[in-house]
Design a protein around this nucleic acid. Structure first.
Lengths: 344, 344
DNA sequence: CTGAAAGCGCTTACAG
DNA sequence: CTGAAAGCGCTTACAG
């Protein structure tokens, strides 16, 4: 008959050793004779002993817990909806699991909330998704003196660990693709263009590429909400105000999804009347009709990389500053949503 | 200058009281004079004291942590991909946060892993998503004697707490909708039909409704993978083997997405050539062309309900057996993917 | 090689 | 009303 909880003390008694010895066997520390170790191991197995992390945590100040922080929408206080997040979390979870770390997912509203989360849970590290340049989150993480990794942020501070994509390059490749097809009047459909945001760099990539062909036109830059709704409404803008436009570079797939819908309602054919490219390469782009040409990123890998950056910080604090920003590659996936420009 | 960590002891010193008193003030227990309490509170505020949950946990055996368990795919060991999960988690997170609980997300592979997760982390409760009837997970949760809630399972054991949808009713309403439009040759496109699965009940709902109109035909029941891929391949089956079919009830939206694509490739028009209904009402159904008629569930509410069921168990173990299964309502959302049957 | 003891930061009877 | 002390389950010097 097992006790309500099998503790190290219980194991020690059954194995006729001290708890220190049991601890040493488990952690492979100190000198323990193989004979004793063997006995202890068998008792552990027999009683299916599982160490208590809270106790270990209290002693070692390690929680074996990473926090993943996502901002929440108001006023429903729901995690921001985004097709990426689940895939991202999936990468984080898989990688953290390999090291016996668990992940606590938290929607955060304010700097105070983040601070409480980190301190109370004794987090060993925190992954912060999509924080903006002037984010108070950064200060909180620094004050708490906890390993942190920022995903999809573009902070100038070189001390910060950041994981993102080659957004600029990816956007440029989408622009190049359309230019090669002969398009010259290209609208850019961006999410909110806050300074140093992902959208900002996608914009820069397009701007450079288009400028090289002398066809960058700032008036064709449309800012909307990064959502299907946003794309839906932007469609009216594009076809209404800019009939000369023959192609649209959408800075996210979800926006392109809305674009498709509104264009269909208006009787436009893609790509005959308008070529469209997306960004992100989420799963549904394969099933859009026509299949969306998009710049694909590996979201899950982003999560994996973030976790590795966390471990790098835990293991040594001397990670060279130059390597703290990792930009993961993206590549253009050819779909059927683009066609040669007819107005040549 | 703050110490590396502000502890209850530190606060006690600064406030000139014992740690017991500080603890009492924080937890509102014991008798403390308002004057003392006031002083303690101000010191707590001044030093921004945040209790250490690990210590509290060790003492009280409560972790203020709920586990959310999702099975993982092999061999990549990634959380199963499903458009719901993020929304589900969002509901869970929001509701748990309200009670100062955090959630640990874990991909699980085996019963052992689940057991270790529960025991080591001292979880206060666990939400298990999509476990099958003969799942070893149930035994583990029972042995660990921990509050558990199963989402989207159909266990016969009335002692288990379960949250799901009115799958049968929802499926029947989709069938009714098509019957009303005059369809009689209706194919059912199901995910894996394991006993007592969500798919199983959706199937039953359709079967009953169609049988009432004498048009249930078992040969038109197609089992496929619940994925866009699955729907894509099923399309060939339907149009190839069963040209008499005029409508398809897909047991998930994601499958309908694949169906759309293949039908488009084959030159079929929806709903002219084939009426289609989906199930779940995920966000992208609004943007499918034509908009998918689907049976919508409130996924986020499912998460909220699961958390409440967890708290019910924590607060009293006497929750009456009849109320342990909650079936949340679903309702048909009318889209443009169904039309009157032309063969009447 | 092994064990006794201190201590991590809390809560909870218990005594005063 | 307030505090001293025990104890939750561990790890870690330290002594033997």
């Amino acid at each position: 008959m097992l006790p309500k909880q099998v503790t190290i003390k219980y194991i020690a008694e059954k194995a006729n050793v001290s708890i220190a010895t049991v601890s040493n066997v488990i952690n492979g520390k100190g000198r323990v004779s193989e004979k004793t170790a063997e006995r202890v191991r068998s008792v552990i197995q027999q009683y299916r002993y599982q160490g208590n992390i809270a106790a270990k945590n209290l002693r070692t100040k390690k929680s074996y817990l990473f926090g993943v922080v996502v901002s929440v929408t108001q006023p429903e206080r729901r995690l921001k909806d985004n097709p990426f997040y689940w895939e991202l979390i999936s990468g984080v979870e898989a990688e953290a699991s390999d090291y016996e770390f668990a992940i606590a997912l938290k929607g955060i509203d304010s700097a105070e909330e983040l601070s409480a989360f980190i301190t109370q849970r004794d987090l060993d590290g925190v992954i912060i998704v999509g924080a903006e340049e002037d984010s108070s989150f950064v200060k909180v993480a620094e004050e708490a003196n906890i390993p942190a990794v920022y995903i999809d942020s573009y902070f100038e501070d070189v001390n910060l660990y950041q994981v993102r994509n080659e957004d600029e390059k990816g956007a440029a490749s989408a622009a190049k693709h359309l230019l090669d097809l002969g398009h010259r009047k290209i609208a850019l459909l961006s999410g909110k263009l806050t300074r140093n945001s992902v959208n900002y760099f996608r914009w820069q990539g397009c701007k450079k590429e288009l400028s090289a062909f002398n066809c960058y036109d700032e008036s064709l830059l449309i800012e909307t909400d990064t959502s299907a709704e946003g794309g839906y409404h932007a469609a009216d803008d594009i076809i209404g105000k800019f009939p000369e436009v023959t192609a649209v570079i959408s800075f996210s797939d979800i926006t392109a999804l809305g674009l498709y819908k509104r264009l269909d309602e208006k009787g436009y054919d893609i790509p005959r009347d308008l070529s469209i490219t997306g960004f992100d390469g989420v799963y549904f782009t394969n099933y859009m009709i026509p299949k969306l040409t998009t710049v694909k990123q590996d979201v899950s890998d982003k999560g994996v990389t973030a976790v590795n950056l966390l471990f790098a910080q835990i293991q040594n604090n001397a990670w060279p500053v130059e390597n703290r920003r990792i930009s993961l590659p993206v590549h253009l996936i050819d779909g059927n949503s683009t066609a040669p420009c007819k107005i040549l």
